[in-house]
């Protein structure tokens, strides 16, 4: 680990793992501008090479997803069987349709890889948003109110937690004949919120016991103020970390479901579908599988790295 992570500025205590050292360097107000913990975390993030690499990758992927025409002018759905059946990549022809070669229907793999980003990123982002809102809300209520509300919500969460993710998703998705993007995203979110709920609940319970929450109650603050002004901003950090890492996981899960033929279906372009299509000719034309699979790995890796970097910045004590 680079030494940077050992001297966090974003923590409440000022420095390092060693308590006495932390006490040795008091935060000195004589210098500097207001520094919120968020801005401290941002300062820390910016210097983390892990973050810089993953952020650049993610920005690139986002641009691909939003305006794929920037990268290629070829229609990824148009096949030309006569000329290009499973031809090998042309390494010299950068950014041209034949760069990564053609698949068995004579479609440009390069164009399909670019266009495939949209489905993957959309599903990942949609599921993460839904899961964070749903799981976050349930976890927050369970953690804040405790007592029987917590008992009921926690048991409810446990029941969902017990459903195997892929088995559950397959069962739900087979009952849909027309599997559009939102159907896939919806069924994944329906099964995936429990992790966030558990993290949120634990984080809220810890934060709830802080003196500043007691102080707010002593001032006569209402539940809304306590929850959204005091507890949420302090409890959200681990949720952000888990959600970022999970985003990569959801993209992988979407590809898996699509590969199995239970996720997205033609004419939607998805890396999972392309991987599935390539599997029959893996020996003769490995490049047909290599590019969508490589892209998928890279995307998942980017989000996991981002999550790690965010964790370092938000909660240095965690490691």
């Amino acid at each position: 680990m680079p030494d940077v992570t050992k001297t966090p500025a974003a923590s409440d205590t000022v420095l390092t793992s060693d308590e006495t050292v932390a006490a040795n360097v008091p935060a000195v107000p004589a210098t500097g501008k207001p520094r919120s913990l968020w801005s401290d975390a941002w300062q820390q993030l910016r210097r983390n090479p892990l973050f810089v690499i993953s952020a650049l990758l993610i920005v690139l992927l986002l641009v691909m997803a939003i305006v794929p025409t920037l990268f290629t002018s070829v229609d990824p759905r148009s096949g030309d069987l006569t000329n290009h059946f499973m031809s090998k990549p042309e390494w010299g022809h950068v950014f041209s349709p034949e760069w990564f070669g053609y698949d068995k229907q004579g479609r440009s793999i390069y164009a399909r890889v670019i266009y495939g980003a949209r489905a993957s990123i959309s599903v990942g982002v949609l599921v993460t948003l839904a899961v964070t809102i749903l799981g976050g809300l349930i976890g927050m209520l369970a953690g804040y109110y405790g007592g029987w509300i917590d008992s009921v919500l926690s048991r409810f969460t446990d029941i969902f937690f017990g459903i195997p993710f892929f088995l559950g998703a397959m069962v739900i998705l087979t009952s849909f004949t027309d599997r559009e993007l939102w159907v896939v995203a919806g069924s994944m979110a329906f099964l995936g919120w429990t992790q966030i709920a558990r993290v949120m609940r634990g984080s809220v319970i810890t934060t709830k016991q802080s003196d500043y929450v007691t102080a707010a109650r002593a001032l006569g603050a209402g539940t809304g103020r306590i929850l959204f002004r005091h507890i949420l901003p302090n409890a959200i950090a681990p949720v952000i970390v888990v959600a970022t890492i999970a985003l990569g996981g959801y993209i992988a899960a979407e590809a898996t479901l699509s590969y199995l033929g239970l996720g997205l279906a033609d004419p939607t372009i998805s890396w999972g579908i392309d991987i599935s299509d390539a599997k029959d000719a893996l020996r003769d034309a490995p490049h047909v599988m290599f590019f969508p699979a490589g892209m998928l790995c890279l995307t998942v890796l980017a989000f996991i790295m981002l999550g790690d970097a965010v964790r370092d910045a938000l909660d240095p004590k965690l490691r």
């Binding site: 409440d12 205590t13 207001p34 919120s36 913990l37 968020w38 802080s210 003196d211 500043y212 007691t214 102080a215 707010a216 002593a218 001032l219 006569g220 603050a221 209402g222 103020r225 002004r229 005091h230 901003p233 302090n234």
Partner: peptide
């Protein structure tokens, strides 16, 4: 009330102005 631990009794995500001004908002 004045609390024991000045390190935990102030919300780390709020500015000093917001912390002292919060009683007026309530």
């Amino acid at each position: 009330m004045v609390f024991q631990d000045p390190y935990t009794s102030l919300n780390p995500r709020m500015t000093v102005g917001d912390i002292i001004g919060e009683p007026y908002e309530i």
